[in-house]
Design a protein around this nucleic acid. Sequence first.
RNA 1: GGCGGCGUGCCCAAGUGGUUAAGGGAGAGGUCUGCAAAACCUCCAUUCAGCGGUUCGAAUCCGCUCGCCGCCUCCA
Length: 473
Amino acid sequence: MGLQFYDTRARCKRDFEPLQDGRISLYTCGVTVYDRCHVGHARSLIFFDTVARYLRWRGWDVCFVRNITDIDDKIIARAAENGEPWQDLTARFIDSMHADLDRLGCERPDVEPRATEHIEEMLELVARLEEQGLAYAVGDGDVYFSVGDWPAYGALSGRRLDELQAGARVEVDDRKKGPMDFALWKSSKPGEPCWPSQWGEGRPGWHLECSAMSARYLGRPFDIHGGGEDLIFPHHENELAQSCGAAEGEEFARYWMHHAFVRIDHEKMSKSLGNVFAIEDVLKEVEAEGLRLHLLSTHYRSPLDFSPDGIDESTRALLRVYETIARADEAGAVDPGFDFDSPETARLVELMDDDFNTARAIALAFDAMRDCNRELDAGNLRAASTARGILAAVGAGVGLFEQDPATYLSDYRERAAQSGGVDAGLVEELVAARVQARTDKDFQKADTLRDQLVEMGVVLEDGPGGTSWKLER
RNA sequence: GGCGGCGUGCCCAAGUGGUUAAGGGAGAGGUCUGCAAAACCUCCAUUCAGCGGUUCGAAUCCGCUCGCCGCCUCCA
């Protein structure tokens, strides 16, 4: 068995065969930078980060490209609203996105191309489409793709042109030949950002950038194209049409992956519904890796209801993992460093190879955690190391459990103390006093001190290495 | 209207034809401990929205009903 995953176009799981042996080209749609990223973006970013990590860990040479859309109507509108140059706006939100990514433990893609840096490639594409008779210019320099002249339109999303009945919800521009025709190039109004072209000054249509940039960095065809499920139609359908159309039907993306949404109270989280939670704000309340674990605990093709309580539950589980790792480290149960082809990781590979089942991989990590603790209890260092190795392998494959455990634990404590308004210095004093009382066998005093700490929400642990404390959640 | 998805224990969630329905959180009991905590052990769905059907066998396939959601417009 090799890797297989659900291909949106085929509507079923397919065995994955890379175009070139040992190499994988992956393109995913990133964000439009006119605002801060929200938890829905986090799911997308984290999931595809996990895909890239796993494929690499699995032994493939991956080229991961994720675009940044830094020119579009919303950006122009928002910049005008703020009274700032649009470049300042996009630069700010690109920085913000990078900060979010770092905190969420996402590696940077190999290439992070921006739409505005590939105008030339896009214009070439439009020219080729025009040559093929698939694009036409109207009026003052708008260029459209002629959907009616592209018979394969609808193949990805499973829609038929006659069923789309455009205009049901949107006013149809009567300059277009067909109601579903979409803009490749939009003429600019005075004062709007624009680039020169043979059709006049303007800017690219939304879908064009991905066609141009994927071809530029990954060639054609490439292996995997991913994004959120709302992009299937029309964005990816349009990308597919214009990419193939410009290349006389040559294949575009060989596999399509789409993840489900994050919801709020059973409704899609989206800017238009106004129920978004910015990553930056959420991370003030919950821990970043806890959020990552939580988002990966649900299979990527299932909707996930966002709730801070749910993240807290995951964070509690995560704390146990780090406590176990710290314990193993102290005991000298070192990670043997299992590779993807070690017999010990066969189960992990099997689970992740089956449509990236991160939920089951995480369950496997929890099993390994229990095994590790049990073996440590029994003093079986060798067996504990094996369990520790499985835990590390899951972590490497999925992008979890990779912080230094001592640092994690002290950060955790500090964070809890801060949010609970507890004076860590005072706690240390009381703990020290209790340790002394215990040494003196004055258990009554020790218990009084403990009661005092309990009231502050402090939980004590008397271990062989001394007494440690943490805040109960 | 067209297309698609979802409904699993107190909560989250995996599983999509075949021995005991993963895992996490919460809860209960136990071992350990000066007492605790942590860790470990045990328990916690004869049952998978409901009703029919196919099958030797279904949470898993088919049909209907109820409830919820997504796409068809910008959207991760």
